[in-house]
Simulated scan of single mutants.
Amino acid sequence: MNVGVRRHFLGIIVLLLSGCATLISEVDPPKISLESFRPLPSEGAVPRFEIKLRIVNPNRQSFDIAGISYGVEIQGKELISGVTNEVPVLAAYSEEVVTLDAGLQWFQLVRLLTGAGKVAGDSLDYRFTAKVDFNGFVPTQRVEETGSFTLN
């Protein structure tokens, strides 16, 4: 190839790349926060919890959530974990509250309570973590919240 053809070819590539760069819009990551974490009425001896996540889309494009994986530590021990792929598409400039229903093994809770000396009415510390995966080019988002609750 002669020098003139190379320069012409290089010029075309630069124009194409700069044109593609202007087509890609900046995407702000979705904002995810723990809306609520509360015990549910038990069915039998297995404690259940309702976990609500608020997911906010600050963009003009919709997001398709592939799935959410989550875990809850109580008194430093992971007792609850789960996954869901039943999440609605997050429309542009909108927010959704996603409800997760989580169970806890009774024997793990008994071991925790007897080892920690906790009884009904005492406060228990928790740590909630979640990973939200999106379809497409949106990066995975991670959430961590801490707090406490009492046993009734």
Rank of each mutant, 00 (worst) to 15 (best):
22 T>Q: 10
23 L>F: 10
23 L>K: 00
25 S>V: 08
27 V>E: 05
27 V>F: 04
28 D>E: 08
28 D>K: 11
30 P>C: 02
31 K>F: 15
32 I>H: 06
32 I>V: 14
33 S>L: 08
33 S>V: 09
33 S>D: 13
34 L>Y: 14
34 L>Q: 05
34 L>G: 04
35 E>Y: 09
35 E>A: 15
35 E>M: 10
36 S>V: 09
36 S>K: 10
37 F>N: 04
37 F>A: 03
37 F>T: 01
38 R>A: 11
38 R>G: 03
40 L>E: 15
42 S>G: 05
45 A>V: 12
47 P>V: 06
47 P>M: 02
47 P>G: 07
48 R>T: 10
49 F>A: 08
50 E>D: 13
50 E>F: 01
51 I>C: 05
52 K>M: 11
52 K>E: 14
55 I>N: 12
55 I>Q: 06
56 V>E: 14
56 V>R: 12
57 N>G: 07
58 P>I: 00
58 P>A: 05
60 R>K: 12
62 S>Y: 14
62 S>Q: 11
62 S>H: 06
66 A>S: 14
69 S>W: 00
70 Y>P: 12
71 G>D: 07
74 I>E: 00
75 Q>A: 10
75 Q>N: 11
76 G>W: 02
76 G>F: 04
78 E>M: 07
79 L>P: 13
79 L>A: 04
80 I>F: 06
81 S>E: 08
81 S>A: 11
81 S>N: 14
82 G>R: 02
82 G>C: 03
83 V>Y: 04
83 V>T: 14
87 V>P: 13
88 P>A: 08
89 V>N: 06
91 A>F: 14
91 A>K: 11
92 A>I: 04
93 Y>D: 11
93 Y>G: 09
94 S>T: 11
94 S>M: 02
95 E>S: 15
95 E>G: 15
97 V>A: 09
98 V>S: 07
98 V>H: 02
99 T>Q: 13
99 T>H: 05
100 L>K: 00
101 D>E: 14
102 A>S: 14
102 A>L: 01
103 G>E: 13
103 G>F: 06
103 G>P: 10
104 L>P: 14
105 Q>C: 05
106 W>H: 13
106 W>A: 05
107 F>S: 15
108 Q>H: 09
108 Q>T: 04
109 L>C: 05
110 V>M: 07
112 L>G: 07
112 L>Y: 11
113 L>V: 02
114 T>F: 12
114 T>P: 04
114 T>W: 01
116 A>N: 11
116 A>G: 01
117 G>W: 01
117 G>K: 01
118 K>Q: 06
120 A>Y: 04
122 D>L: 08
122 D>Q: 02
122 D>C: 02
124 L>Y: 01
125 D>Y: 10
125 D>F: 09
125 D>S: 13
125 D>I: 01
125 D>G: 14
126 Y>H: 03
127 R>Y: 00
128 F>I: 03
128 F>W: 11
128 F>D: 00
128 F>R: 03
129 T>Q: 03
130 A>H: 02
130 A>V: 00
131 K>C: 01
132 V>A: 06
132 V>M: 04
132 V>Y: 00
132 V>G: 06
133 D>S: 08
135 N>M: 06
135 N>K: 12
137 F>L: 08
137 F>D: 13
138 V>Y: 10
138 V>L: 09
139 P>G: 10
140 T>M: 04
141 Q>P: 03
144 E>D: 12
145 E>Y: 11
146 T>P: 07
147 G>I: 05
147 G>K: 00
148 S>Q: 13
148 S>D: 09
149 F>R: 08
149 F>V: 02
